[in-house]
Measured scan of single mutants.
Amino acid sequence: MDSLVVLVLCLSCLLLLSLWRQSSGRGKLPPGPTPLPVIGNILQIGIKDISKSLTNLSKVYGPVFTLYFGLKPIVVLHGYEAVKEALIDLGEEFSGRGIFPLAERANRGFGIVFSNGKKWKEIRRFSLMTLRNFGMGKRSIEDRVQEEARCLVEELRKTKASPCDPTFILGCAPCNVICSIIFHKRFDYKDQQFLNLMEKLNENIKILSSPWIQICNNFSPIIDYFPGTHNKLLKNVAFMKSYILEKVKEHQESMDMNNPQDFIDCFLMKMEKEKHNQPSEFTIESLENTAVDLFGAGTETTSTTLRYALLLLLKHPEVTAKVQEEIERVIGRNRSPCMQDRSHMPYTDAVVHEVQRYIDLLPTSLPHAVTCDIKFRNYLIPKGTTILISLTSVLHDNKEFPNPEMFDPHHFLDEGGNFKKSKYFMPFSAGKRICVGEALAGMELFLFLTSILQNFNLKSLVDPKNLDTTPVVNGFASVPPFYQLCFIPV
């Protein structure tokens, strides 16, 4: 009986604490739906499609509103004006990374994606500088992407125009580009180590996009005490870190300090320079996690976009025909596509942009946080508050993009057929937390897609009208449904 009384008292205290925290903070924060004790607004949000729920709530509470995930307040920004004001106009104040408990377990605050403060700034600055020195957006990395595009075309030829699921092959190409940047090595598509790495990356994007992960991140005790797919994700990350550590040891034994070959060499050189400046942010643990982040951000996002792009091109054969006509006119058949071609191919450029806009790969991006107490639109948001960005509300804005739910390359073309930029184009987020590999991803999408369409016609196994382009999961990332196609050599 005594234990029951204690339990009831504990629960009562928890409920009172929950109510007090919510009521004391709500006077400062933007308005929002009334949260339930302990669980907050979790029942009012469709976990399978958070973005749709945010759109519905914005119609009631406006472009800036507050939700509670458990006891934790989260300020939501919906629509271009609110997102721009926060991420661009007040970029420094909104540059923090929001709480992501599962990532905390995986990387302990290291790396480039989930770190904060001085650690994040130094690692991000170093990573950007190193990638630029190796030619991100310049010639040397373009050579690597072109080489991988040629290998991709050869792998597709091996399908002999038979029906195939493109998931694996389209994942190999961007993964190999990242391998060449980090390890100075590309792998054969049949290499077992490479296959294991690909498998872990593919599993992780599916797990991260599941409703279960949303629950884990908002009720963090689940991570330590409950079984579930989150444990598989943590094991996959541990596998990748151990693999990278092996490569780091190989580099330490063979590195030429006067001739760095890749990202690992550059990081080890930085560690050597910083060894007298303790404590340094440049450690082996930081290198492991930064490399894992580059793999995660640079492989599955690009391969998922490529997979979605081919599905949309199957669905819209008239678009595919126009792209192939432009390829034939500008590039021809006797040389590989290059980035200089893009400025002469406005329709193809528009298609690449429209694919990214339409699929809305990361509907709410990753959570941000404010780095200080900030007054925002007459609300006071306390330091450390998590900020949720609705990228969907920007990419699918119906004023900027008429009929935003329709796939239409003319969203990025003017009346004369010239490519038209849009400030609403934010597939990689915006501001200080914009994806480090934005330029690389854009290069890969253009070169891989043009190389495929230069060499193959795409054949659907069903009537294009019957192809479903609805994402199968739409949590962290929008993942396309399973499909097969035939690559018919031109």
Rank of each mutant, 00 (worst) to 15 (best):
L461P: 13
E274M: 09
D49F: 01
V436G: 06
G475D: 05
A441W: 04
H368I: 05
N116Y: 03
S3V: 15
N41H: 04
G70C: 05
K138Q: 13
T470R: 11
R335S: 06
K138R: 10
Q214H: 07
R26G: 13
E354P: 00
E154T: 09
P174A: 10
T130I: 08
G98P: 14
E203D: 14
G79M: 00
G111V: 02
K432N: 15
F428V: 04
E142L: 02
P37E: 00
S3R: 01
G442M: 06
L294R: 00
T290S: 10
A350H: 00
G40L: 00
E104P: 09
F226R: 02
S336T: 15
F94Q: 04
A291D: 02
L449K: 01
T301I: 13
H353R: 04
L16H: 00
S303E: 04
Q252R: 13
L294W: 04
C164F: 06
Y68R: 12
V472Y: 08
A321Y: 11
F226V: 12
K200P: 02
D49C: 06
S254W: 07
H411F: 02
S343C: 12
I374D: 00
L36M: 10
E415T: 15
F69S: 09
D360H: 07
K322A: 12
D262M: 01
S336M: 11
L90T: 06
I331Q: 03
I327K: 00
K241E: 09
L294C: 03
T470E: 07
K48V: 14
P101R: 08
G62K: 01
Q340Y: 11
L36Y: 15
C151N: 07
R150Y: 05
E92F: 05
Y68Q: 08
I327S: 01
D262E: 02
P211E: 06
L156K: 00
K206P: 04
N334V: 12
C266R: 14
V248G: 02
I50M: 11
I169P: 06
Q214Y: 13
L234C: 12
T364V: 11
N418R: 10
K52Q: 11
T283G: 07
S286T: 10
P37T: 03
Q192T: 15
I47C: 15
I222G: 05
S24Y: 09
T470V: 09
T167V: 02
Q324E: 09
N202R: 13
R357A: 01
L7A: 13
K48A: 13
V352G: 02
L413R: 01
V351R: 02
F114C: 14
G171K: 12
R150G: 06
D191R: 00
W212L: 07
N116E: 08
P317Y: 06
E288N: 14
T34A: 08
S422T: 11
S210L: 06
F428R: 03
P367A: 06
Q454W: 06
Y483C: 02
R139I: 13
S280P: 10
F419L: 06
Q484L: 04
P260L: 06
I488G: 02
A350L: 00
A103L: 12
K423Q: 12
G91V: 04
L268P: 04
F239K: 10
Y243T: 09
S162V: 13
L391P: 11
N418V: 08
Y379D: 03
T364W: 15
K190C: 06
N176Q: 02
C10W: 10
S210E: 06
R21G: 11
N217L: 11
I331R: 01
N218P: 11
C338A: 07
P404V: 04
S220H: 07
P363A: 05
V83R: 02
C10K: 01
I181E: 01
F114V: 07
N277F: 12
D143N: 09
W20A: 04
E272T: 10
H368R: 11
E199Y: 07
Q261M: 13
A439M: 09
R124E: 05
K322L: 14
R139N: 12
A106E: 08
V5D: 14
L14T: 11
I452N: 00
A477M: 09
F187T: 03
N466G: 10
F419T: 03
G32R: 01
K28M: 15
K185Q: 15
Q340V: 10
E328I: 10
V330F: 06
N277P: 08
L306A: 02
P30Q: 01
V473P: 14
L4F: 15
T450N: 05
V292W: 12
K72R: 11
R139H: 09
T392Y: 08
V177K: 00
Y379F: 12
T66V: 03
A297M: 10
K118Y: 11
V292A: 11
K72H: 15
L445V: 10
V83D: 01
P174V: 07
R125Y: 15
A291P: 03
R307V: 06
L15T: 13
T469A: 15
F69L: 12
H396P: 07
Q22A: 10
D256T: 09
K158R: 08
T229D: 11
G475T: 10
N455R: 06
A477V: 14
N455T: 07
P337A: 09
E281W: 07
A238V: 12
N455Y: 04
N217G: 12
T283L: 05
T385C: 08
E326C: 00
L102G: 07
S53N: 15
F226N: 03
N289I: 10
F487W: 04
F100T: 09
T392M: 05
V472S: 09
P402Q: 09
L234M: 15
K273M: 13
G332F: 02
N403A: 10
K48G: 10
L311R: 00
V83C: 08
G70R: 02
L467P: 01
S220C: 10
G228V: 06
L485P: 01
D397R: 03
Q356H: 11
L395V: 07
L391G: 12
K247E: 13
T304L: 15
K52T: 09
I244P: 00
I374Y: 06
M269V: 08
E203A: 08
I42R: 05
S429L: 06
G431N: 06
P409E: 04
L388C: 08
